[in-house]
Design a protein around this nucleic acid. Structure first.
Length: 348
DNA sequence: CGCCTTAGGGTTATCGACAT
DNA sequence: ATGTCGATAACCCTAAGGCG
């Protein structure tokens, strides 16, 4: 692994120019582009030599011979750590964030949702926010959707409109119709209760269950238990811009679309994992390409920051987008939003 | 008969090697 | 460090062939 210090000044200059141009054009960068737009006093032949060295070191790659160069994950890491210069967040962006977040008396989950939406609209990428976990979330609706094999997708909707998805295993064969009956039973039982109250109620019902002859109800209670077991203690509410109410998706019924959505949920759990990772460390975290640890995010980067009050980390938020996103602009955006959300939580 | 798709050939962009 | 030259692969245009 070649470290930043081992790079000559010239190589740093060229690398920075290549990445800047790549962020701007999204295409392979030619040696001529560098001499034209960035380093006018050098010839393209010189740049080619330097670029060839950088390629050997693993900072650049060529899609094909006779194409320009594209920066690698490694190059972006060096770039965000050493080369880029952060821009300050434009005043109009600050004002908009303040204006949206400052509406008094709004629910915490609304604030987080707004933050996610702001991050998305200002960055033009996908905004993410992990809500602080609160044991007082009340349940509005629960739904089971049968998947392949013995798996089911559980959808929990909280009173505040937060949607949560969990994948659980079913023991034995269950038809969708039976799952529907179970969910309506559980809805009746748990609707309006908080997570902690749900747990108590569940234990109580399980005790009474001995006298029930309906085996389906018995299974329903088991499912409820499984859901709570995985969901309540580590309840993570993720806000992904545009995904918060998937009941509106008509394609949810279609099998192919179902697979896609299911994959997106898979990613969602990975996203939670990433945000969790950044929560443990605190501050701003940047995951580039393969550093995210999952192949679905190849070519993507995540910029995440934690928010909280007086040293308590409550949650995290960030932006996920293509690896070539404009870090110098988005890092200050994420940072500012996280700080403001933290402040709002302290006051509210 | 007309439109759309596809195959082929010439053009352009870019590189690496080598010489200066 | 720089200029030049040959090689290579994508790009673009045109024309032939297929399809409704």
């Amino acid at each position: 692994m070649v470290s930043f210090e081992e790079l000559s000044e010239r190589k740093k200059e060229v690398l920075k120019a290549v990445i800047s141009d790549y962020i701007f054009t999204a295409g392979p960068v030619s040696s001529n582009a560098i001499t034209d737009r960035y380093l006018r006093d050098l010839s393209s032949a010189t740049i080619r030599n330097v670029m060839a060295d950088l390629e050997e070191m693993g900072f650049l790659s060529q899609p094909h011979t006779s194409a320009g160069r594209v920066p690698t994950d490694k190059a972006f890491r060096i770039y965000v750590d050493h080369l880029m210069e952060l821009k300050s967040l434009p005043r109009q962006d600050r004002e908009e964030i303040r204006r949206v977040c400052n509406s008094p008396g709004q629910e915490v989950s609304d604030l987080i949702k707004d933050a996610s939406r702001l991050l998305s609209s200002i960055s033009h990428h996908t905004g993410l926010a992990l809500a602080p976990k609160h044991a007082d979330t009340t349940l509005k609706h629960i739904e089971f959707v049968r998947l392949r094999g013995n798996q089911a997708l559980v959808v929990l909707v909280s009173q505040s409109g937060v949607v949560q998805n969990k994948l659980i295993g079913l023991d034995g064969e269950l038809k969708q119709a039976e799952l529907d009956r179970m969910s309506s039973y559980l809805n009746e039982l748990f609707s309006g209760l908080t997570m902690t109250a749900m747990k108590e109620r569940l234990i109580e019902e399980m005790r009474k269950e001995k006298n029930l002859y309906d085996r389906l109800l018995k299974k329903a209670l088991r499912l409820g238990e499984e859901v709570l077991g995985t969901a309540s203690s580590e309840a993570k509410e993720v806000f992904i811009e545009g995904r918060s109410s998937f009941f509106e998706y008509p394609e949810f019924l279609d099998v192919e679309r179902m697979k896609e959505i299911f994959r997106a949920f898979e990613e969602k759990s990975r996203i939670v994992g990433l945000l969790d990772k950044s929560m443990k460390a605190g501050g701003i975290h940047i995951f580039i390409g393969c550093e995210t640890g999952s192949s679905e995010f190849n070519g993507c980067s995540l910029i995440a920051a934690t928010y909280g009050n007086e040293g308590n980390i409550l949650g995290s938020l960030g932006v996920i987008g293509p690896m070539r996103m404009d870090y110098s602009r988005i890092i200050p955006l994420v940072d500012y939003t996280a700080k403001l959300v933290g402040k709002m939580l302290k006051e509210g």
